[in-house]
Amino acid sequence: MQRTVAAAEFLAASALSQADAVGAFARDGLLSSQEVFTQQLVTGLSNGMIIALIAIGYTMVYGIIELINFAHGDLCMLGAYFALTVVGALGVDHWVGAGGLMGLVMVLVGTAAFCGSLNWSINRLAYRPLRKASKLSLLVSAIGASFILVNLGLFWGGLPMDVFANGTSSAAPKAFPALVSAAPAAQIGDVIYSRTDLLVLCVTLPLMVALTYLVRFTKLGKAMRAVAQNPTGASLMGIDVERVIGATFFIGGSLGGFATVVYSLYNQTVSFQMGYRMGMDAFIAAVLGGIGNLPGAVLGGILIGVIRSMSDGYLEARWTNTVVFGILILILVFRPSGLLGAKLREKV
């Protein structure tokens, strides 16, 4: 084990010295245009991977019951408050070394379980009774669920806890403790690869691989695909459709839970309003990639992240939303079902 670490360090060091020698990546505190581009790409990818993980939750639910789950972003917001509460209650931010890593994993898994269960309950209480109703009723129910979650977040933020600065103002943005320091994990020239960038990668990639495995190769995954294709047919084949839908909500929600912890660690701020932006970005990503399509959501998320980053970097920040929506409109004009979406019958 020790040897591998040493080898990795050697590799990193040689990569650094090589890069320094190239010149374009000189470590002089002044960023060359190449370094700026690389740094923007890193930022874009990190933001994009987080968006992608949230978008998966959107797209899974759409794929299976054709509902645009507007409560998804706010579910993630509530997950962030849960994570912050756990961190504050157990003092995870004071754990060091291996304990700190364990604490981080615990917060990640705990929040995922919380968000998963919550999403499952929302489905049970707000969506399942409307299964036979029109799609529009379902959509309105989702918007209602979103409002309830936002107000729960507002209430939660006002609880007198140390970690909320004793709730002096319920609506104030809360600082999320830096469980993972923002210090550079590696620096090539002046391009900084921070530990939080690394964290994003270490959490999102394995989850995406695991999800792909689950959907493609397990019995549950097969059942999910069957229900997505034809719920009536699936139930005739002996699949418990409601159970599969419940499982989909749980999995989508828990991915959102992982995403929200990573998001909070990356941005170090939690606010009851953050759900709107998270949900909006993820929704656009899901539509861009082809809603209902899992690889599409990932591709869409990464694209949105990188486009935002490049637009901030090379245009002006105030044009970023215009650029993102402009590209979305263009893609939808020429490929109405998104980048990877199959040509489907009319939905909603």
């Binding site: 700026v36 874009g44 935002r308 920040a317």
Partner: peptide, 22 residues
């Protein structure tokens, strides 16, 4: 001299631009 999006989740890309301007 730049106007930001006050609702953005983070401003890392802008920070890179600022770093480049030193």
């Amino acid at each position: 001299f730049e106007g930001i999006d006050a609702k953005a989740s983070n401003y890392r890309s802008l920070v890179t631009k600022i770093r480049a301007a030193a």
